[in-house]
Simulated assay, not measured.
Amino acid sequence: MKKRQLGNSDLYVSELGLGCMSIGTEEAAARRIIEAALEEGINYFDTADLYDFGVNEKIVGQTLRDVREQVIIATKVGNRWNDERTSWSWDPSKKYIKEAVKNSLKRLGTDYIDLYQLHGGTIEDQVDETIEAFEELKTEGFIRYYGISSIRPNVIKEFVEKSSIVSVMMQYSILDRRPEEVALPLLHEHGISVVTRGPLAKGLLSDKLLDKASEKGYLDYNFEELQAVLPLVKEKVAASRSFTEVALQYNLANPAVASVLAGASSPEQIKRNAAAVRSQPLSFEEVAIIKELTKASIYQQHR
């Protein structure tokens, strides 16, 4: 599988990464999913301390232990479970980040994290303090690089201006083109990579199409609009290939994107997604058709 450079780092991530949140807590089943990803050439594994109260990190770390030097492990910090584990609060403080990283390292069973990401962020945060924490962790050797996971243009701009982030994770798909307005061009201009999540829009952009549709619609598409646009994209662009191919290749067609994170709950799903990423890239004309048929949309908040 092809790899792309992550920002200005020396990390080269597979075009398809595994979003590990969906692998579950049954260790044997989760291990099979991760091993299937390795077999397909995936080297980029994304987890978070929030997932399954840290169990996800532990499973990912144990499964990847024997290939640790050949893979890129990314995890996240900032969401803090309460003592009862019934809810979490947002804590981007330096004190918490430097405490949490040690717990993640222990669960992952590794001496370093390749990519440590702030798991959210608001414009009210003490951004300078947060950045200081990440920079110190780099100097101390606990992390190699850092990034953020955010869809908020105002937060992204702050980190672009003030930090040395190498990546931003954000939701992006044919049905959620909001990042194209500000974030993708800005990040590409500054040499910061985008890692996309939600590329299949909760299954709407798979071959099941409207089988996955809710009467509530999806983002600013109502159900009737989905009924109109999805078959049209299928007809114009995906007539001779799977919709999953088109959806993943649409993300990879943007020059800011380094990797597409897709979750998987089975080895078979991994194989299908990997085949889609290896498929023929979309032409300039196909990308233009998709943009013509779908909504550009913008972020109404967080400006």
Rank of each mutant, 00 (worst) to 15 (best):
K2C: 08
K2V: 15
K3L: 14
N8L: 10
S9C: 07
L11D: 03
E15D: 10
L16C: 06
G19S: 07
C20H: 06
S22H: 08
E27Q: 13
A37Y: 06
E39A: 09
G41Y: 06
G41D: 01
I42W: 08
Y44P: 01
D46K: 01
D49P: 15
G54R: 02
V55D: 12
Q62R: 11
R65F: 12
D66Y: 13
V67N: 07
A74C: 08
T75K: 00
E84T: 15
S87Y: 11
D91K: 13
K95M: 10
I97H: 05
L105P: 14
K106R: 14
T110C: 10
Y116K: 01
L118F: 04
G120P: 10
I123C: 04
E124D: 10
D125P: 00
E129C: 05
I131E: 07
E132H: 11
A133P: 06
A133S: 05
E136A: 12
E136R: 02
K138Q: 13
T139R: 15
Y145R: 00
Y146V: 01
S150I: 04
I151C: 15
I151L: 12
R152E: 01
N154H: 09
V155H: 05
K157D: 05
E158F: 05
V160Y: 01
V160N: 06
S163A: 09
S163Y: 05
S163F: 04
S164Y: 10
L175M: 06
D176N: 14
D176R: 15
E180A: 11
V182A: 12
V182K: 11
A183G: 10
P185S: 03
H188R: 08
H188K: 14
H190N: 08
G191R: 00
G191Q: 01
S193R: 00
P199Y: 01
L200P: 11
G203I: 03
L205C: 05
K208D: 04
K208Y: 10
L209Q: 09
Y221Q: 05
E224H: 07
E225R: 03
L226Q: 07
L226Y: 05
A228F: 11
V229G: 12
E235F: 08
A239G: 15
S240C: 08
R241M: 06
E245K: 15
E245T: 13
Q249F: 02
Q249C: 07
N251G: 15
N251C: 15
A253S: 12
A256H: 02
A256P: 03
L261K: 02
I270R: 02
I270W: 12
R272T: 07
N273W: 11
A274W: 08
A275G: 04
A275L: 11
S279I: 03
Q280L: 11
L282S: 04
S283N: 09
V287I: 06
V287W: 00
L293R: 13
S297K: 15
Y299S: 13
H302S: 14
